[in-house]
């Protein structure tokens, strides 16, 4: 691994954490191409993935070479939260993941937009994209929650299953000047509000697994992540030094 892929300093580490969030979620959303429940939704999911990929490229470039960082790092060097690496599951799981994450990302970028360069400029642009992503997730949460019995059951299952990955969202990230308590309170109010409106029950279980090893921000990931990276990095790594 080159030095470009081993950034340090709190500023670059923060950009890396946010960049990895966006990159890995874009990778997951890209897997929907050709599998979405309706053609209109193909276009919608791809739009969100492209927004995130754009954010990821800007953020990773703040820390080094974007491709070096995306394709040459080992699993332990990725700083994304575990939530974004969770498999797509059914459409309800994807929507639950989107709801939790985009609500968080919009609030986070909202705060960063009023902060310092270089993150403030990126955040000011990205927060509008995040607002649209959150709206998309909310619209679908309402329709799945308050649709049929089956969709209600699936959406509740998905919200419950992914809840355990939400605690990590509010752990302070070094280098980010964010009021984390406020962020968490606002997030909870927003998510609870829409979940309740969708006739669903806000999950109540623990928001993190009880494990001292840490979580995504410390480079500790879940089992599906290794496979995601293997697939994403394989071609690039098979041709060391090649240009594409």
């Amino acid at each position: 691994m080159s030095t470009a892929a081993r950034p340090d300093g709190p500023g670059t580490m923060a950009a890396l954490a946010l960049g990895d969030d966006a990159l890995i979620l874009a990778q997951r959303l890209g897997e929907w191409a050709g599998h979405a429940p309706e053609l209109e939704e193909e276009v919608a999911l791809a739009n969100i993935a492209l927004d995130l990929l754009g954010q990821a490229r800007t953020l990773l470039t703040l820390s080094g070479d974007e491709d070096e960082l995306a394709f040459r790092r080992e699993e332990r060097d990725f700083r994304n939260v575990q939530l974004v690496e969770q498999p797509n599951g059914d459409f309800a799981h994807t929507i639950a993941r989107q709801l939790y994450f985009s609500t968080y990302q919009e609030l986070l970028y909202g705060q960063l937009a009023g902060g310092t360069e270089p993150l403030s400029a990126l955040a000011a642009k990205a927060v509008k994209e995040c607002a649209y992503h959150r709206d998309h997730a909310e619209q679908w949460t309402l329709r799945l929650g308050d649709g049929t019995e089956e969709s209600h059951r699936r959406m509740q299952t998905a919200l419950d299953a992914l809840w355990r990955y939400t605690g990590e969202l509010f752990r302070p990230v070094e280098g980010l000047d964010v009021a984390w308590d406020t962020l968490e309170d606002t997030w909870r109010a927003s998510v609870t509000g829409i979940v309740t409106q969708a006739t669903l029950t806000p999950p109540e279980g623990p928001q993190a697994a009880p494990w001292a090893a840490g979580a995504g921000r410390q480079g500790v990931h879940t089992e599906p992540f290794g496979r995601l990276l293997a697939e994403m990095q394989h071609l690039h790594r098979s041709h060391p030094g090649a240009s594409w």
């Binding site: 209109e40 276009v43 619209q139």
Partner: peptide, 12 residues
């Protein structure tokens, strides 16, 4: 949803 789909499809 029609508005949102229209935004995604016809103004991308």
């Amino acid at each position: 949803m029609a508005l949102r789909n229209a935004r995604d499809l016809y103004t991308r």
